[in-house]
């Protein structure tokens, strides 16, 4: 992990994900209000806030997973590597390949471990068995699961433990070689030991990927993230280096939340 004695300065980083005046509606209900934020490349950004504050909704706007919700509507811009992903004619398939996602509840396919990881590369056109095997191994190694499953790649993935399934889902997301990894409360359904493993994993992956993680667990945000965005009632209240948010928040609401006065 980075040394956080010195608070990080946003100006020192390339900004990879930018949202500008982003409004989001579920039918008539507005869920996000004018979110403007820039998230740095190859860093871990945590989205925190009480339930229903819009942090998960915001996360899903970054790979357009909200598109599949009937009645969902977006206003404003999200720029990834400088390109507006809501621009007319954006290839959602390409976008989601670049912006991978790990869900709250681990959701491996009812297929073998190998087929789970190979799924992404396969649908993107990799046919060669050896090439697939290499991708599967690399992804499982990165997700810290290789040693545990290398002898039973053909077993059904649903036979793995909860923590292993979640790391398998991370491996599956890594297999399509994304730049950005979105994680929606990836450890909230896991036991403490598995949670620690996933958190360690995030620490290792931050070298290679820009990570945005939603968490309701403030200790987790403090442990794994470099930057933190605090959401409240659909608005972004404060965004800063994690160290500053947790030691010296500028906004009263942020302070109240992180000191546990509400949540």
């Amino acid at each position: 992990m980075v040394d956080k004695k010195q608070a990080l300065l946003l100006e020192d980083f390339d900004i990879e994900i930018v949202s500008r005046d982003l409004n989001f509606y579920y039918g008539d209900n507005q869920a996000l209000f004018g979110i403007s934020v820039g998230m740095p490349a190859k860093q871990v950004t945590a989205l925190i806030g009480p339930s229903g504050c819009g942090k998960s909704t915001f996360l899903r706007t970054l790979n357009r997973m909200n598109d599949i919700i009937p009645g969902a509507r977006v206003e404003g811009q999200v720029l990834i590597s400088g390109k507006d992903i809501y621009q007319h004619g954006t290839d959602v398939v390409k976008l989601r390949r670049k912006v991978g996602m790990v869900f709250q509840k681990s959701n491996p396919f009812p297929k073998s471990i190998f087929e789970n990881v190979a799924y992404g590369p396969r649908i993107h056109g990799t046919r060669d068995r050896q090439q697939l095997a290499a991708i599967v191994e690399k992804s499982l190694v990165r997700a810290g699961l290789w040693e545990e499953v290398k002898d039973r790649l053909n077993d059904n993935a649903l036979g793995l433990s909860g923590g292993q399934q979640q790391r398998l889902c991370i491996a599956r997301a890594l297999a399509v070689d994304p730049q950005i990894l979105l994680m929606d409360e990836p450890a909230s359904a896991l036991d403490p030991k598995s949670t620690a493993r996933v958190e360690d994993l995030i620490g290792e992956l931050r070298e290679l990927y820009t990570i945005v993680i939603v968490t309701h667990n403030m200790q987790q945000a403090a442990r794994v993230s470099d930057f933190t965005a605090f959401f409240y009632e659909g608005a972004l209240v404060e965004f800063n280096a994690t160290k500053l948010i947790f030691t010296n928040p500028k906004e009263k609401q942020t302070e109240d939340y992180i000191t546990g006065r509400f949540g």
């Binding site: 790979n63 997973m65 599949i68 398939v93 390409k94 976008l95 989601r96 390949r97 991978g100 996602m101 869900f103 509840k105 959701n107 491996p108 396919f109 009812p110 799924y119 992404g120 649908i123 993107h124 889902c169 599956r172 997301a173 399509v176």
Partner: peptide
Amino acid sequence: VPHVYKRASLALGASQLQ
């Protein structure tokens, strides 16, 4: 079929038909 499978597949960049 659980929705989570479909979501996982879409999130990996699969098209609807895939």
